[in-house]
Write a protein that binds this DNA or RNA. Sequence first.
DNA 1: GGAACGGATCGAACCGATTCGATCCGCGCA
DNA 2: TGCGCGGATCGAATCGGTTCGATCCGTTCC
Lengths: 340, 340
Amino acid sequence: MVSIDEVARLAGVSTATVSRALSGRGHVSPASRERVHSAAESLGYVVSSRASSLASGRTRNVGVIVPYLDRWFFSTVLSGATSALMRAGYDITLYNITADAAVRHEVFSTFLRRQRVDAVVAVSIELDADETGQLLDLGLPVIAIGGPNPRLRTLTVDDTAVARLATEHLLALGHHDIAHIGASPEFDMDFHIPTQRRLGFEQALADAGIAPNPAFLEPADFTVDGGFRAAKQLLGRPGPRPTAIFAASDEMAIGAILAARDLGFRVPQDLSIVGIDGHELGEFFQLTTVDQFPLGQGERAARAILAQLEGTDAAPGGDLPYELIVRGTTARRRVGVTSP
Amino acid sequence: MVSIDEVARLAGVSTATVSRALSGRGHVSPASRERVHSAAESLGYVVSSRASSLASGRTRNVGVIVPYLDRWFFSTVLSGATSALMRAGYDITLYNITADAAVRHEVFSTFLRRQRVDAVVAVSIELDADETGQLLDLGLPVIAIGGPNPRLRTLTVDDTAVARLATEHLLALGHHDIAHIGASPEFDMDFHIPTQRRLGFEQALADAGIAPNPAFLEPADFTVDGGFRAAKQLLGRPGPRPTAIFAASDEMAIGAILAARDLGFRVPQDLSIVGIDGHELGEFFQLTTVDQFPLGQGERAARAILAQLEGTDAAPGGDLPYELIVRGTTARRRVGVTSP
DNA sequence: GGAACGGATCGAACCGATTCGATCCGCGCA
DNA sequence: TGCGCGGATCGAATCGGTTCGATCCGTTCC
């Protein structure tokens, strides 16, 4: 490997000047700068991050913690974050916290403390008090996407408002008998998002003066299959039947569409369905949804971290955008034909 | 941050001994080892990878290059690789080569040369000669998953054999009129996998003495939507109609299932459909497929790299497993009812 | 009993950059 | 002409570990 000394020799300057010329810090005459750059180029020299980070304390590397890699939502956020960071010249070190509690603990107690990263982005992770503390202890810029955490700088979407928006869309179309596929009320403590979405749903109903029907609350696990099963229950069960379904994720909404078709219900004529997320398959299924732009979430997190790192810190975290995308799975309630 | 000197002082030994005790290299008496470990623990000391890697040349970090993050197949391979590497105590630095040619070039010419990684795993990337050369120049262990590359150690599945297996499954069920959704013959040079799969398809037909029907070759882009459109063409067009479809990916196969339903064809009674990959939704759609265990691919790549890094290099790359999973979307051809 | 051996330990050189403080020099101004 | 100032540059200290070579010492074996 080429070292800075060879570049210095070839350019006829000291290593100090090479360092300043290449990093852009401190004064270097245009002539020297040019000589250094062409010497570096002709030798194929790239600054060793090992040495550079030891001496300067900067790594040009951002740690990203994700709970799942093989789920569409998370990998999309990650994709947005990585491309923005790489464009800025940063490397990304990936910490995949999947399932295994031992690994998860190790990440916070060891991996992150190796001084390998300049900053940390935590994507949609429910951090407990210990983990939050360990993150803070690093003394680095930290951004958490998702779930509010008062001790951390966060980028959050208002999950309750999102759910309310989806529900209000159905209400505006004349639906009263609206079912929800998502969190079971007992799940409350563990994971915030499903619960927030259920609360938003209930708020919207309450605002419209509609009493919640417990039979219209069907728990599911946020997968297509889960949505499919839940919808089959809602539609197949004897007794009153909803005219619309609000699913807490697009995957579940897609499952619900397929279940409805299976049972002979036409969407949206017989049943309206709305989801949340902005899933890549939403377009294909003509799914009405509240998009929360996961790619954009990753990019915003990256920009926020970069702003902190470069010192031009303007944005103090903030709210993430969302938007109702009306496509083909929702329609006005058909009066008089609804409940056969 | 705690440094090695503090640990040495607390344990009453030299920094050299601390280093040997914690890394497990060289001789340290059990007593000293114990004192060092408990000193380190009580101080919350973690070896600085900056300093350690500069001094030793080892980073405990593996670079992983992926072409897409937001596609199921790649993120699943990545997930398998990361969890295996993290379990072994390695960090993962992620290089996402998506689209942008400038970034892609930068990765090979700069990012990877920063001496940040001990080894590189390239996931399903078609590397050109330059890129292969740059990878080799790093002088590090490199493993490529996917596409054969004579200059690199690779882990590959025999794409032609996989496609042949899928096709032979349909043949064995009595189908003669089999369509293929996948690569167009003109695409040949760019990307190997679609072409290999088409060739396997054609080989299997030839072996069975069936002349290929150009009208039964429908190009598509490996997405659900692409498979959907392709199947609509195949099934809706006037003229002879296939009794079975072999799609070159599960996503396209799922699109084909939905298209068939749309048009009123029953799967598998009227139409058999088989895919490739082992997609997470395969189970839900009861899709018959040739699974290639992407999670396992990532794990195997990780193990191969670890073996090279730890010196216990036994496995010289090799072939990846695949397996026909017969579920509900394929059945015997219904004699006499096939072509209305 | 002494040489040979090998485990335990230490001091110090070293990895390859960054950056502080010092020196040098040209220029403007009194 | 002399002085002060600031840009350009350099030497050397520094970052925090790892590891080489040397020292020390208790065993084993002639």
